[in-house]
Design a protein around this nucleic acid. Sequence first.
RNA 1: GCCGAAGUAGCCAAGAUGGUCACGGCACUGGUCUGAAAAACCUGGGAUGUUGGUUCGAGUCCAACCUUCGGCA
Length: 300
Amino acid sequence: MAKLLIISGPTATGKTSLAIKLAKKFNGELISADSRQIYTGLDIGTGKDHPKNIKINLVDIITPDQSFSVAQYQKLAHQKIIEIQAKNKLPIVVGGTGQYIDSLINPNKPTYSIKPNHFLRFFLNRFSTFQLQKLYSFLDKKNFDSLNNSERHNPHRLIRKIEIKLSLGNNKNSPPKIPSFDILHLSLTAPTSYLYPRIDSRVEKRLKLGLLDEIKKILKKYSWSDPGLNTLAYFDFKKYFQKQAPLESCISTWRFHEHSYARRQKTWFKKREAINFIDISRPNYLKQALELTKKWYNLS
RNA sequence: GCCGAAGUAGCCAAGAUGGUCACGGCACUGGUCUGAAAAACCUGGGAUGUUGGUUCGAGUCCAACCUUCGGCA
């Protein structure tokens, strides 16, 4: 079975640099699983400070005014995996977008074939959560009743469910058939007390690198309502640029958003199966990653 | 040293005339998730500066002390 190496983990754990090391050792090529680095122009804020001589697939593929989603990612990433394997190289998927990674591991989700209905969304986005609940309950009482508390209050999820319900019969495209791979999934992790200071100093670093100038430049072409701008490090400065908040408060808001993002990522990966967790606060973690990979790679 | 103001969770902060063991927000914690995912949601714990007093009952009134801020010296 064709091999696929996955490197995941919360933000600021050094996924990319580990991936680059392993790519060199095992003749690999990288594929990003990062829902924000796909956007051109969002460079400093999304951390595209990779070495120039390293090729990373699925970075900079669309502009900030375009929308993107898992299903598209799944298709593109899958193509890349096949291409790389055909070159007799090891594909290495690296990134922190858990949902994107899941789409490659458990690929055959039927609802991926149901496309977003932007016309419908335009209207439903004006509905209150309560109205969405009523509507979905009317359309599909059984499924509505089975929703848990957090789904029930989540307008995005309710809209998607309504969309799926209403589109039945229209989207007949069968879900893409994605073969299964021989996967090694390494997931970097660390206690939050170790992660937060790393995040904080990276925040400072990105400001020094000229994040605010980058945002200014982006705003000349794109607007705050564009999908790409709904990204940490960017929307946190909306109030500053609109003169509704001082710079300092935007920076600390951004920092806190990064913290909770890291927490959400940890929660996501924690529950996944077949993951080898590697605690980067341990001194020998690189060696551990290397050995796990070597062992897996040499078993054929 | 004197005068004034203030002290409610890590931070901000509400609390008419004393009366459900105190509203919120941020942070922090745990979780949800299948074409918005760096998104969008759900959940949890924690507080009345100290010591006395008045009162059936005090964050709320009184006194002293401590701390902070402002002003005068």
